[in-house]
């Protein structure tokens, strides 16, 4: 073991993953390359675009700019943790139905921010939805259909 690596246990979507990671690894890289969950995307690697959004103890965090070793002992939720087996989460069904997915790269991050928003604010106004998703960039859809999907989910849940 290199002195620059540390053994940590990361709890991802309720499963404990004992991993050996370089101290300066970002969480998104470890989730994708070590844990093997590639739903979380790396876009800007600069805390700007939100493609890497995961939940840490229920709060959205940019995982590209968060040290993996610092996440030990926190509950990490990735987009893979949204669905219940083969049953998609209502947010996933609605974003598909609304046409809120085009290239799909921003979708995992959008879903995680939306999930945290609805957990905290079950009946958000459109303004609250826009603020809740304000750290997530989408270059395809123009946002309107994504916001509609979140609004529809709030009505259903």
């Amino acid at each position: 073991m290199s002195t620059n690596e540390q053994a940590v246990t990361l709890e991802v979507n309720g499963i404990a993953y004992p991993v050996q990671v370089p101290m300066d690894s970002n969480l998104s890289g470890v989730l994708r390359n070590t844990v093997g969950l590639t739903g979380t995307k790396e876009g800007c690697d600069d805390c700007e675009c939100g493609a890497c959004m995961v939940l840490l103890d229920g709060q959205p965090v940019n995982s590209c700019s968060y040290l993996a070793v610092q996440a030990e002992g926190r509950a990490i939720t990735t987009v893979e943790g949204l669905a219940d087996g083969d049953e998609l989460h209502a947010l996933q069904r609605n974003i598909l139905a609304a046409g809120g997915v085009q290239c799909g790269f921003c979708t995992p991050g959008m879903l995680m921010s939306a999930r945290a928003l609805l957990d905290r604010t079950p009946n958000p106004t459109d303004d609250e939805i826009r603020i809740g998703l304000s750290g997530n960039l989408c270059r395809c859809t123009g946002y309107a259909k994504i916001i509609a999907a979140v609004r529809e989910t709030a009505v259903q849940l």
Partner: peptide, 26 residues
């Protein structure tokens, strides 16, 4: 290091050197 939103971003961009030893205060 607290949230790392300045330090980790700066280090990944090469603007700052990641300190050898960190203490997480969050």
């Amino acid at each position: 290091i607290a949230g790392g939103t300045d330090l980790v971003v700066g280090a990944r961009q090469g603007k700052v050197t990641m300190p050898t030893d960190l203490v997480a205060i969050d």
